[in-house]
Amino acid sequence: MPDVEIPIEKWTGKVKEVKLGGGGRKEVVVGGEVTLPFLAFEGSNPNPPRIAIEIHDKEPIAWPASLLAAWGDAVKDPGTWAKKAVEFGAEIICLKLLSAHPEGGNTGAAEAKAVVDKVLSAVDLPLIVLGPGVAEKDNDILPAASDAAKGQRIALGNCEEKNYRTIGAVCLSDGHIAIAKTPLDINLCKQLNIMLSDLGVPADSILMDPDTGALGYGIEYGYSINERLRLAALGGDAMTSFPIINHAGGEVWRQKEAKASEGVPDAWGNPEERGVLFEEITTSTVINAGCDIVVMCHPKAIERVKATIDKLAGK
């Protein structure tokens, strides 16, 4: 074998480290990268990508049978679901407050608080709490959710252009982490980070969600936006240097290819295996683009992605 000199990239920037949990809860630190993912020869990234498992405050209506079967009755109760997620290897729990959606139950602040309380007492992992994504409802219920978890450093989202002030402010007040969500656009992402920083949210309390599409649904955009954010951060741009969270799992299980079990060509194969592969590949892809937290759904896909992370990390 001829000697090949491996070119080493010199980066000037570093991704900020963000700590979730604490206050009696397990702690997980993400971020801190000094080079692109899994390039151990170039620099040592202190924290591996982490897997968060998505749970909902009510039984999912749009999930396919193959995914529901993997969870069984646990999906009927967020506390039980969270416990089961721990068994399946969750490092973080991502709780979506979907029942607050005006068309999905329209529940209010009190219900949001009760669910957060329940999940907090069921498990000791760090928590991510997401509102229904309707600005007015988010503004209404997230302050209550935040209050319930005061001092336990959860990540709260999503901050979008319309509601970042409210969520940013409660994060500041209760010591939580703000998740800044933008639609696949590096400049909008950066702009929102700047606005959150202007609001006073400290640099160690911001996560970015630049969005992605599933494999076949624009994953190249997702890959590219994640990679560009990371390259910019490593290049020294402070306003893109926050850890990245990605909802690869949720994106996959929305799509027809993950759901359809009848009336599709035989070549599509077994529906469960198909969905699991779909999630596995989508998630591994965004991890390779630099994501720090991936939010996943199917236990089998989770197991495989974990193994991939370990392998890439040389474990």
Binding site: N139, P143, D147, N163, R165, T166, G168, A169, S173, L199
Partner: peptide, 11 residues
């Protein structure tokens, strides 16, 4: 103060 404070911040 919390309820009003939030409204002050978000405008």
């Amino acid at each position: 103060a919390r309820s009003w404070g939030i409204q002050l911040v978000d405008g």
